[in-house]
């Protein structure tokens, strides 16, 4: 039975810092990729893998009883790779091969090439349905595993997302947790300019989900929210995480609409790493 692999609470900020550094350095080295998308979910990933939430075993990534984490917003791959490396799925040195020919760290996650990746994503809107399938299988088999799916707020404009929300809510799949990285921006504009999602928690509640909004950069609130999700019975749970796109790097934070899908240029890297701080 895979176990959670919690770090001390005091270690979590340092882990988050390391993830941020990996995200910046790997995308800058690649010369492409989505650092701002990845930076907004760092505390969420940190708590999932190191805050006692996910039960997983990097030495047995296919254990049928493992909890699943699916990155539906697949362009956040640099964030996923950073946390998988820190969790021990592969050496952190490999992060520098991001997007290179031959590397399993493709531009978007490929489950056939990298252990720990639960779904091949990159075409937005599909991960929640896949998570729903895992959740249904878990219930069918009487296995106690839980399924966590990370979605973007722009991604939540896809109809398929709401098809999955509707089914999971109607069928009371309480082993399924959706996390919406509500960073306020999509590719071309602010979400509010393109397709406002509000009132989001109310919508989700009306679809049969237990839903709450949190500060997605507060480790304490994130820890609390996952505990709430785990102990909620009878309904799937949605954590709407208010976040900042590009969190931790002021240049990226200053113009989230402009920086989507763009790595920091090499001459901005040192300053960004200084802002993030040295890993503890």
């Amino acid at each position: 039975m895979p176990q959670t692999r919690p770090a001390e609470r005091s270690e979590l900020p340092g882990i988050a810092q390391r993830l941020r550094r990996h995200i910046v350095t790997s995308t800058t080295a690649a010369g492409s990729g989505h650092p701002s998308t990845s930076l907004s979910m760092v505390e969420l990933l940190t708590v999932l893998y190191f805050g006692g939430v996910l039960r997983y075993d990097p030495s047995d990534p296919q254990d049928p009883h493992r909890d699943r984490f699916i990155l539906s917003k697949g362009h956040g791959a640099p964030g996923l790779y950073a946390v998988l490396a820190e969790a021990g799925y592969f050496p952190t040195e490999e992060l520098s091969t991001l997007r290179r020919l031959g590397s399993p760290l493709e531009g978007h996650p490929n489950m056939c090439r990298l252990p720990g990746v639960e779904a091949s994503t990159g075409s937005l809107g599909q991960g929640l349905s896949i998570g729903l399938g895992h959740a249904l299988a878990g219930r069918l088999d009487g296995s106690g595993y839980r399924v966590y799916v990370m979605l973007g707020d722009g991604e939540s404009e896809e109809g398929q997302v709401w098809e999955a929300f509707m089914y999971a809510g109607n069928h009371g799949l309480d082993n399924l947790t959706a996390i919406i990285d509500h960073n306020g921006y999509q590719q071309t504009d602010a979400v509010d300019q393109v397709q406002p999602l509000e009132p989001l928690t109310e919508k989700l509640a009306s679809f049969g989900w237990a839903a709450r909004t949190i500060d997605g950069h507060s480790l304490d609130e994130v820890i609390e929210a996952f505990e709430w999700a785990r102990t909620t019975k009878g309904r799937p749970q949605a954590i709407v995480a208010r976040t900042t796109k590009g969190k931790g790097v002021s240049l990226l934070e200053s113009a989230p609409g402009k920086w989507h899908g763009k790595p920091l240029p090499p001459d901005e890297e040192a300053k960004a790493l200084e802002e993030i701080g040295a890993a503890i």
């Binding site: 690649a30 010369g31 492409s32 990729g33 697949g74 997007r99 493709e106 531009g107 978007h108 490929n110 091949s120 994503t121 990159g122 075409s123």
Partner: peptide
């Protein structure tokens, strides 16, 4: 398209 990979 290159680096973005197969999904795109």
């Amino acid at each position: 398209i290159g680096e973005d990979g197969p999904s795109q």
